[in-house]
């Protein structure tokens, strides 16, 4: 009897291992799919803008970019096409979050530090030489599970939910059940915007689960019918549902015409006025050629 119990245990261990290996395989496949998907877009753009890269023809060297994770799709697609046009240019794009972007460009570790919010007062004080370039607008929306019958909330309801005052979906016209709150860490630009514009700088309950990225938010909310969280509109797909806020649906069109108010600007920051390759890259993103990259990334160009 003893040995039967033990072989069950060893079998369980083996199963865990096989499961881990299997999932690794799945992860490998899906990331390969993503790669091939992202390769298509730049190819199409290159054909449409065959002369857009003239500004880079005479340039060479390295350009390092880091910071806000919302910026990455725009930066990577633009960087890939620029590097394709000129082999002498190497552009790297890293994440880290808005706080990291500001810190790294301030310390001179990267040429461009991205932030999904304006510079904070203490950051300006710490790094007085930083110059900010806003290039896109992104909306931030509350998200719930697609099966959740609650699709619309007023500002008062939203604030009461995140403050932990409304704790059951039945109070909002949904199926009875505890509300599971998900929020972002304090370094998040997404949190800054949602907190100041949707929650009117109200409390976020200390019981809320904290996740560290837009992706982790989507994973958490898409797996839990009783969850509510918030994320950038650009990242919303079929796995989560954006919540209509004060009667306005969270779409980029509504953000563009100003009717949806929970929005933020995306910024590139440089230490001092940009020069050379850095200037060429920023001009490219801000100019007519940058528009398609910004739109493909799910955001609204400014101008």
């Amino acid at each position: 009897m003893m040995s039967a119990r033990f072989s069950t245990r060893s079998l369980a261990l083996l199963m865990t291992l096989l499961l881990a290996v299997g999932l690794l395989g799945v992860a490998g496949c899906s990331s390969a799919d993503e790669d091939s998907a992202t390769e298509e877009t730049p190819a199409a753009d290159t054909a449409a803008e065959a002369t857009a890269f003239d500004a880079f023809a005479e340039l060479e060297g390295d350009l390092d970019i880091a910071g806000g994770t919302a910026h990455i799709p725009v930066m990577e697609a633009a960087a890939a096409d620029i590097m394709t046009s000129n082999d002498a240019i190497l552009i790297t794009v890293a994440g880290g979050g808005s706080g990291v972007g500001v810190e790294q460009v301030g310390e001179g570790l990267v040429e461009i530090g991205n932030a999904g919010r304006a510079l904070k007062d203490e950051e300006v004080e710490f790094y007085p030489n930083l110059v900010s370039f806003a290039f896109a607008v992104d909306g931030v929306a509350a998200v719930v599970h697609p099966d959740n019958p609650v699709t619309e909330l007023s500002a008062e309801q939203m604030q009461a939910i995140f403050a932990g005052e409304i704790t059951d979906w039945a109070d909002l016209g949904g199926d009875a059940g505890e509300i599971h709150l998900f929020t972002r860490d304090e370094a998040s630009g997404t949190r800054d915007v949602f907190w100041s514009k949707a929650l009117a700088e109200g409390d976020i309950a200390v019981e809320a689960n904290v996740v560290a990225s837009n992706g982790a938010m989507k994973t958490a909310v898409s797996g839990d019918p009783q969850a509510i969280g918030y994320m950038g509109i650009g990242g919303i797909d079929d796995s989560v549902a954006g919540v209509t806020f004060d009667g306005v649906a969270p779409t980029q069109d509504n953000a563009k015409d100003g009717s949806y108010v929970v929005t933020r600007k995306l910024y590139m920051n440089t230490k001092g006025e940009p020069e050379g390759l850095t200037k060429a890259f920023i001009d490219f993103i801000l100019g007519a050629d940058g528009v398609s990259y910004i739109v493909d990334g799910g955001y609204i160009p400014i101008f």
Partner: peptide, 21 residues
């Protein structure tokens, strides 16, 4: 739900330099 010290470091590392956080 709880927060471990290691996870706390991982999350707060990215906040603005200086200050009590």
């Amino acid at each position: 739900s709880i927060r471990a010290l290691t996870a706390h470091i991982g999350m707060v590392m990215a906040t603005a330099v200086g200050g009590p956080a």
